[in-house]
Structures are given as C-alpha cells and as structure tokens.
Computed example of a mutant assay.
Amino acid sequence: MQRYSSRTIPTYLLSAPAMQWAHQRSYYSTKADAEEPRLTHTDPDTGEARMVSVTDKTPTKREAKAIGRIVLPDQAYKLLKDNQVHSMKGNVLTVAQIAGIQAAKATSNLIPLCHPLLLGLIDVRLWLDDAKRSVECESVVQTSGKTGVEMEALTATSVALLTVYDMCKAATKEMVIQDIRVVSKTGGKSGPWKSDL
C-alpha cells in the first residue's frame, strides 16, 4: 500500500487537522549551516512550484549588489562614445538607468515566486569601459524586510543592459550581454556574503 504525506496530496483534499499541520511547516529561503543546499521554491516530493513563506521571519536591513556588462563591436562602441552616449531614443546610459530602476520595482511581477517588496534604495550606475569596449552596470538595492533583494538587483542590471541593447541595435546586432551576477549581499538569517569571483 502506497503511503502519502501531506506534501504529496493537494491541500484542498486534506482534512482540517492535516491541513493545519501542513501549513505549520515553514519553508524558508535561508538555511542553517548544517543543512544541505536545496531548492526552496519547489516541493521536495512533488516538484511543484511554491512561494516560500516569510511570515514568521524577522525584518532586517538587506542589501544586494549585482553587476554585468554589454560588449559592443569596435565601430558601435565608437559611435556610442563619439556621440556622447546619445541615440535617436535619447541618452543611452540615462534611459538604461531609469529602466533598471523601474525593473527593480517590478521584479515581483516578472519573477513569479518573488515577494513584492518595499524598496528603500535602488542605485543603478552605468559607465563606458574603453578596454573592454563595454557598458558596465552595477545595481545596489536595499530594503528593510523579511526577504532578500538579490533578485531585484539582478533584474535592475539585466534590464538596464537590455535597454542599452535596444538603443544601440540600429548600429549593430553583434552585442553580447555577459557576466550578470550578484557580487554581495547583507542581512537576513544567513548574514553577509561576498562573491569570491
């Protein structure tokens, strides 16, 4: 006879006591040091997607920084630089910066299982790197809340760089967006973290 747990049966089929037990279990995005890494947005038994509960977590000040770049061919990079970073759509870096800020605020609408957050700071910066022929981007996001802002920082950087692509695609399609990643974060149960890369 096959045995089922409350996690393998849809909650609407559970009795009231079993449903109460199922909802008492907490699935957090942070983990204790002794725990093995796991995917917290999927049920370990069924593989179904789920939103992580942060209801019982203590709010803390949180910050995340994400970086990335878009590399342009020589001629397109020269056009970007010689025209003082302007295009038919406006100042490329300024428009990309605004797009990144808007994207960070809209992260929970773009990433299905992200929590909506009240963001206290969104700082998106873009600059030209002559050696790499690239537009570099760094996004810092802060909040005081129950879950981290890594996704908001990544979304800000990604959309800012996509905006650069959109505004330069008339000159070339041969642009490469690369190395988008979180480089540091603070706050929460797991504490501060910094990339070794």
Rank of each mutant, 00 (worst) to 15 (best):
G145N: 04
L79Q: 06
A170K: 06
V141A: 00
I180Q: 00
S158L: 04
V54C: 10
Y77T: 12
H115G: 13
H115K: 07
S134N: 09
E150V: 13
K146L: 09
R125D: 06
E48D: 11
T107C: 09
I111R: 08
D129W: 06
L80N: 02
E150W: 07
L161R: 01
T147V: 04
I98R: 00
Y77N: 08
K81H: 05
A96S: 09
V54A: 07
R50A: 14
A171D: 12
P116V: 12
T172W: 13
G47C: 07
L162H: 08
S139L: 01
A104N: 00
I70F: 08
P59K: 05
L80Q: 02
G68P: 02
P73D: 05
R125G: 07
V149H: 00
A76M: 13
A96K: 00
M88T: 14
V164D: 00
C137R: 00
G148L: 11
I111T: 07
N109P: 15
E48L: 10
K132E: 15
Q142T: 06
V183F: 05
A106R: 12
I98W: 00
Y165M: 07
V124K: 00
V85P: 09
V124T: 02
N109R: 13
D166M: 09
Y77C: 14
N83W: 03
T46P: 08
I180P: 02
T107K: 01
D123Q: 02
M88V: 15
K132I: 12
G188R: 03
S139V: 04
E63N: 08
D56I: 07
T155H: 02
D43Y: 03
S53Y: 15
K185F: 12
V182G: 01
S184G: 08
R181L: 10
R50E: 15
Q102F: 15
D129F: 09
L118R: 05
K57V: 13
H86P: 11
D82K: 04
G90C: 06
G145S: 08
L72F: 03
R125C: 12
